[in-house]
């Protein structure tokens, strides 16, 4: 399962914002951390703003702030705003038994992917991120990951 670039950026960004709901996080911070173009990120952040998930403040010290409910908002809620998972147009065009059988197997995988994304809230995701940071910080000689929104 490979998400589109814009979707990935949206997830990175919203997790950064949700990790620090009281802070303003700038687009430049996120762009630098994930090595992405500010231009591409700006469009994603606009879409998140239109969806009511973040609000922006202009000026010095300005940035974006999470306005959703991290205990309720799921990964799928965010993904659905940027792409439709599992909508393989070939499935609708399947005319042979082989195509239909393959489409059925693909659809199984898509359904599992959707359920997985739907079952993980941003709060749960932040706990996973925390868990990922722990061994990285403890393992000798390992790369110390930047914490969220730093």
């Amino acid at each position: 399962m490979k998400l589109q670039k814009a979707t990935e950026l949206a997830l990175y960004s919203i997790l950064e914002f949700a990790a620090n709901p009281d802070a303003q996080v700038s687009a430049a911070q996120i762009a630098e951390k994930y090595g992405v173009s500010s231009h591409h990120l700006a469009k994603v952040l606009r879409d998140l703003g239109r969806a009511g998930l973040v609000e922006s403040t202009r000026g010095v010290g300005g940035g974006y702030r999470f306005t959703g409910n991290a205990k309720r908002l799921t990964l799928l809620d965010v993904i659905d705003k940027f792409e439709t998972l599992g909508a393989d147009p070939r499935a609708f065009e399947a005319s042979t038994p082989v195509e239909r059988a393959l489409a059925r197997v693909s659809s199984e995988i898509d359904e599992i992917a959707r359920s997985t994304f739907r079952s993980i809230t941003l709060s749960t995701m932040l706990k996973l991120v925390e868990r990922e940071q722990r061994p990285a910080a403890q393992a000798p000689g390992s790369r110390v990951e930047q914490p969220l929104a730093s």
Partner: peptide
């Protein structure tokens, strides 16, 4: 059930 999002989310949490 994969559609039982209430419990799936709970166990995930």
């Amino acid at each position: 059930d994969r559609d039982n999002n209430l419990l799936l989310s709970f166990f995930r949490s």
